[in-house]
């Protein structure tokens, strides 16, 4: 599978997929998409990169261990729920606010929660795929 063309295009393909996954994640609240789908797309990107160029470049590119990413995502999701406690509403109730950076942008705990979902899915599934690929090339 490690053909020259594949090896050359894989990094670009992977980066495009990661970008696309973030786009899918962020638009998820209003159009089809969201953390789960985005996470799966990004994980596929890393898996493809790993198949094409080996596991260590992927690990270097990720910088953090995939499991750590996954754990951080879970933390983000859980903490986004905690914020609602300060408002005196139940755990995980969505809180919205609007900030103006040139154009008005809605930010909310719900987006943070979805980002957490994204990170968990990316981290876990990338770690699975990389672990299996590593055995393959060992």
């Amino acid at each position: 599978m490690r053909t020259l063309i594949f090896r050359t295009t894989a990094p670009y393909l992977a980066s495009l997929m990661v970008l696309f996954s973030i786009f899918v994640l962020l638009r998820g609240h209003n159009e089809p998409g969201g953390g789960f789908i985005g996470g799966l797309i990004a994980a596929s990107a890393f898996a493809i990169y790993g198949i094409a160029c080996g596991v260590s470049p992927v690990r270097r590119a990720l910088y953090f261990h995939p499991t750590a990413i996954s754990g951080f995502g879970l933390l983000v999701s859980a903490c986004s729920g905690l914020l609602s406690l300060f408002e005196g509403v139940p755990f995980l109730t969505g809180i919205w606010t609007e900030i103006n950076v040139g154009v008005p942008v809605d930010i909310s705990t719900v987006i943070a929660f979805d980002i957490g979902v994204y990170l968990v899915v990316v981290g876990s599934i990338t770690s699975i795929a990389l672990a299996l690929e590593e055995r393959e090339h060992a």
């Binding site: 789960f36 599934i125 699975i128 299996l132």
Partner: peptide, 16 residues
């Protein structure tokens, strides 16, 4: 949607 992701995780686990 969540079931698909979870069943995938478990499929991977069973496979390994």
């Amino acid at each position: 949607l969540t079931a698909i992701v979870i069943s995938f995780s478990f499929f991977a686990f069973l496979l390994v």
